[in-house]
Amino acid sequence: MQLESMYQEIILDHYRNPHHKGLREPYEAEVHHVNPTCGDEVTLRVHLEGAGDDARVADVSYDSMGCSISQASASVMSDLVIGRSVKEAMVIGDEFLALMQSRGQAEPDEDVLEDAVAFAGVSKYPARVKCALLAWMAWKDATARALGEAS
């Protein structure tokens, strides 16, 4: 059955026990993103250390409401970016975006995407791709704003 290919155990685990959830201080930028077709929402904060090319993701905290895919994706995303340089994290973000736009055709790189490879099955369902990308888009937006404020 196809359901298992979308709802892999990793995704269900992150959904039931999301990592880094809850809004925390300090932060340089906070954004609120919604998926207007279904009403899923995320409020996300980014805390950076350093500036310019040396900027590092010190913390990502969020409060969100939505389906298992959007919730698990926020959890996996925060795991992947916290502790990394903004530059490295953006590369992972681009890799994840490419995977989600692949319509199930891409071979995900587990070294780069770690738990996020589990979302490969989601890319076959165009209606759910936005769910998986919601938190990533919020994080990118918040990071751009935080960098803008820092400079």
Partner: peptide, 19 residues
């Protein structure tokens, strides 16, 4: 979440609206 209910229903051939 309704999205997840809808996904399972779709897999079974049942078309509903969610959102």
């Amino acid at each position: 979440h309704p999205h997840d209910v809808g996904q399972v229903l779709d897999e079974l051939g049942v078309a509903v609206r969610v959102g």
